[in-house]
Deep mutational scan, measured.
Amino acid sequence: TIDEIIKALEQAVKDNKPIQVGNYTVTSADEAEKLAKKLKKEY
């Protein structure tokens, strides 16, 4: 679900690790936030 994706992003940001979500690779908190907002609009 979208919530699980967002939790995974938040965890990756805390661990400061890049995370791959679908076609996106998120490497920073800023990118994670942008991706989360984008995904919320889509779903």
Rank of each mutant, 00 (worst) to 15 (best):
residue 5 I to T: 01
residue 7 K to M: 11
residue 33 E to F: 13
residue 20 Q to V: 13
residue 24 Y to S: 02
residue 35 L to P: 00
residue 36 A to V: 15
residue 16 N to D: 06
residue 25 T to E: 07
residue 4 E to M: 12
residue 39 L to F: 06
residue 31 E to D: 08
residue 25 T to W: 15
residue 34 K to L: 13
residue 5 I to S: 00
residue 10 E to S: 05
residue 20 Q to S: 12
residue 43 Y to V: 07
residue 27 T to A: 12
residue 13 V to H: 05
residue 23 N to S: 13
residue 27 T to C: 15
residue 25 T to H: 12
residue 41 K to Q: 13
residue 9 L to R: 00
residue 16 N to S: 05
residue 19 I to T: 10
residue 42 E to L: 15
residue 8 A to H: 02
residue 13 V to Q: 06
residue 18 P to K: 05
residue 15 D to N: 09
residue 15 D to F: 13
residue 34 K to M: 13
residue 12 A to N: 03
residue 13 V to C: 08
residue 14 K to P: 02
residue 9 L to E: 02
residue 37 K to C: 15
residue 40 K to F: 10
residue 32 A to L: 08
residue 21 V to H: 02
residue 26 V to N: 01
residue 31 E to P: 00
residue 9 L to S: 00
residue 26 V to Y: 05
residue 40 K to C: 14
residue 6 I to F: 06
residue 40 K to G: 05
residue 12 A to L: 08
residue 31 E to H: 03
residue 5 I to A: 02
residue 12 A to E: 01
residue 30 D to R: 08
residue 17 K to F: 15
residue 7 K to I: 07
residue 23 N to F: 06
residue 35 L to E: 01
residue 24 Y to G: 01
residue 22 G to A: 05
residue 18 P to G: 12
residue 9 L to P: 00
residue 21 V to T: 03
residue 20 Q to K: 13
residue 38 K to A: 10
residue 12 A to T: 04
residue 2 I to D: 02
residue 28 S to W: 05
residue 15 D to H: 07
residue 21 V to E: 02
residue 24 Y to Q: 04
residue 32 A to H: 00
residue 7 K to P: 01
residue 28 S to K: 00
residue 31 E to L: 03
residue 34 K to A: 15
residue 12 A to G: 05
residue 43 Y to F: 11
residue 40 K to D: 01
residue 27 T to Y: 15
residue 21 V to F: 11
residue 35 L to Q: 00
residue 16 N to G: 15
residue 20 Q to L: 07
residue 33 E to S: 10
residue 4 E to S: 08
residue 6 I to A: 01
residue 36 A to W: 14
residue 30 D to Y: 13
residue 33 E to Y: 12
residue 30 D to S: 10
residue 1 T to C: 15
residue 4 E to H: 06
residue 32 A to M: 05
residue 10 E to W: 15
residue 43 Y to K: 09
residue 39 L to Q: 00
residue 7 K to N: 05
residue 38 K to I: 09
residue 25 T to L: 14
residue 38 K to D: 05
residue 41 K to M: 13
residue 35 L to A: 01
residue 28 S to G: 13
residue 29 A to E: 04
residue 24 Y to E: 03
residue 26 V to T: 04
residue 14 K to A: 09
residue 10 E to T: 09
residue 34 K to Q: 13
residue 30 D to E: 15
residue 43 Y to M: 12
residue 28 S to Y: 04
residue 25 T to F: 15
residue 12 A to K: 02
residue 29 A to P: 05
residue 6 I to S: 01
residue 2 I to Q: 01
residue 43 Y to H: 09
residue 27 T to Q: 11
residue 11 Q to E: 07
residue 31 E to R: 00
residue 27 T to P: 05
residue 33 E to W: 13
residue 34 K to I: 11
residue 32 A to S: 02
residue 34 K to H: 09
residue 16 N to V: 03
residue 39 L to S: 00
residue 36 A to S: 06
residue 12 A to R: 02
residue 21 V to G: 03
residue 20 Q to R: 14
residue 21 V to W: 10
residue 19 I to Q: 03
residue 25 T to M: 12
residue 26 V to I: 13
residue 24 Y to P: 00
residue 35 L to F: 04
residue 3 D to V: 12
residue 25 T to Q: 11
residue 36 A to T: 05
residue 10 E to Q: 10
residue 38 K to E: 11
residue 29 A to W: 07
residue 4 E to K: 07
residue 13 V to F: 09
residue 26 V to E: 02
residue 9 L to A: 01
residue 16 N to W: 13
residue 4 E to P: 03
residue 36 A to M: 15
residue 5 I to R: 02
residue 23 N to P: 15
residue 32 A to Q: 02
residue 30 D to G: 08
residue 7 K to Q: 09
residue 11 Q to G: 06
residue 7 K to V: 07
residue 38 K to W: 15
residue 24 Y to F: 12
residue 28 S to P: 01
